[in-house]
Design a protein around this nucleic acid. Structure first.
Length: 116
DNA sequence: GTTTTGACGGTCT
DNA sequence: TAGACCGCCAAAA
């Protein structure tokens, strides 16, 4: 039996994404680097699989601040709508002042909390 | 078992 | 400054 088995990056991405504070956004590379996944694609791929879960995946965007995964949502506008409700202004499916709303994973979290 | 795709990022030209 | 290429790891066909 697996007792001390580290959770899959799949589970880590969920934890980090679900830990994004209200009104904040982050990018795939930040999560990938925080979890030491080595590739931002893993994050996007994981979120794609978890697209059916109730996690604030709309707060995760690509490095350019674009709502890349909006197409995976029930509606391509739900992502923008949710972000606007959180006080994040969206322009042409892109986040305005992305770096201003940018949130660094681990800023209030500890990687140890996930790798335990 | 091999090949292609995928909600990306960084570096090079 | 902008555009293009490669690299990362994993899953599905």
């Amino acid at each position: 039996m697996k007792t001390e088995k580290a959770p899959s990056y799949f589970d880590m991405v969920y934890a980090v994404t679900a830990s994004i504070p209200f009104g904040r956004v982050t990018n795939y590379g930040a999560i990938a680097d925080f979890l030491s996944l080595g590739s931002a694609r893993m994050v996007g791929w994981a979120l794609n699989k978890c697209g059916h879960l109730s996690i604030p995946a709309h707060r995760v965007v690509n490095r350019k601040g674009e709502l890349s995964g909006r197409n995976q949502f029930p509606t391509p506008t739900i992502m923008q709508e949710l972000l606007e409700q959180e006080g994040v202004e969206i322009k042409d499916n892109k986040i305005v002042d992305f770096k201003t709303h940018f949130w660094h994973p681990g800023e209030y979290l500890k990687l140890e909390e996930f790798i335990r």
